[in-house]
């Protein structure tokens, strides 16, 4: 197990530094690499907060209320997990491409989606969609609505309710979801590759840039850029491990105070 994880990591850094530190540095500060880094960060910076808001809203609705079509909605949230990213990218091309359904209209209004930055953000948002919601829904379900009801009777308003009661109970799950969504957003290759068009310095993200360098037989530079992504992966893993213990802590507290309620005596509209 350790072999599978550590050996490739060592290989990435060994290859990246094979021509010395100067070559490593120049590969990273290369303007195209820098542009790719900027685009990756931009895509993540937009996709992750969007998914955070969406995940919280979905977690609240699906975790706290029972309604018709709830199961269908949960399935829909998992769609980006089920569909191959390449297919997802192709769907966006079909929708927003020059011959697509919405493409001509968008282009007429001066809004290029495919082979441009908006397409990359769209694809990134799509593939990282489920992470926050997936983490938040089970916690919300387990915690139930009693604490919020108690707060309401005590005079708390909507915002106070959310900030003082709901959020503190789910914060670790939210953070965990955000970190996973971020890792996916920065590392995504397939969907982004299809909509990107690989325009150097304009629509290349880090993973795409790595591929281009590698295809140009510039292995050392490819691995140098790849090492940035590897660092991201390591940071993600460490954060994930730290937060996981916290999430489990919340889960056990929830189990201890597990509540049994009659179906008609709970899950009412707030």
């Amino acid at each position: 197990m350790g072999l599978f994880l550590v050996v490739p990591l060592v290989a990435v850094f060994a290859e990246a530094l094979s021509k010395g530190f100067d070559a490593y540095q120049s590969a990273i500060v290369d303007p195209d690499a820098f542009a790719a880094l900027r685009l990756t960060l931009l895509a993540a910076a937009i996709a992750v907060p969007l998914n955070l808001v969406f995940g919280l809203a979905a977690g609240w609705t699906l975790g706290k209320f029972q309604f018709r079509g709830r199961q269908l909605l949960i399935t829909l949230i998992d769609l980006p997990f089920a569909v191959s990213p390449v297919i997802a990218g192709l769907v966006f091309v079909l929708l927003f491409g020059r011959q697509g359904w919405l493409g001509p209209w968008a282009i007429d209004h001066g809004f290029e989606v495919v082979f441009a930055v908006p397409g990359i953000i769209l694809a990134t948002t799509f593939v990282s969609f489920p992470f926050v919601a997936r983490e938040v829904i089970p916690i919300m379900e387990a915690i139930g609505t009693e604490e919020e009801e108690a707060a309401r009777v005590l005079g708390a308003g909507g915002l106070q309710l959310f900030l003082r009661i709901t959020l503190p109970n789910i914060k670790w799950a939210v953070l965990y979801g955000v970190i996973l969504a971020n890792a996916r957003a920065m590392g995504e290759f397939g969907a982004v590759s299809v909509v990107s068009g690989h325009i150097r310095g304009v629509t290349n993200t880090l993973p795409l840039h790595v591929e281009i360098l590698y295809n140009e037989y510039n292995a050392q530079a490819a691995f140098a850029v790849a090492s940035l992504l590897a660092c991201l992966a390591i940071v993600t893993l460490i954060l994930k491990a730290v937060i996981e213990t916290r999430v489990q802590g919340v889960a056990t507290v929830v189990e201890e105070s597990a509540v049994e309620v009659m179906p008609w005596e709970s899950k009412s509209a707030v």
């Binding site: 009693e146 604490e147 009801e149 108690a150 707060a151 309401r152 009777v153 005079g155 708390a156 308003g157 003082r164 009661i165 503190p168 109970n169 507290v253 105070s257 509540v259």
Partner: peptide, 19 residues
């Protein structure tokens, strides 16, 4: 609203704020 009724409510499973 429940908020404005000035009632005290004690829940079956206490519903204390765990954090």
């Amino acid at each position: 609203n429940a908020r404005d009724r000035r009632v005290g409510f004690v829940f079956q499973h206490y519903a204390l704020f765990r954090h």
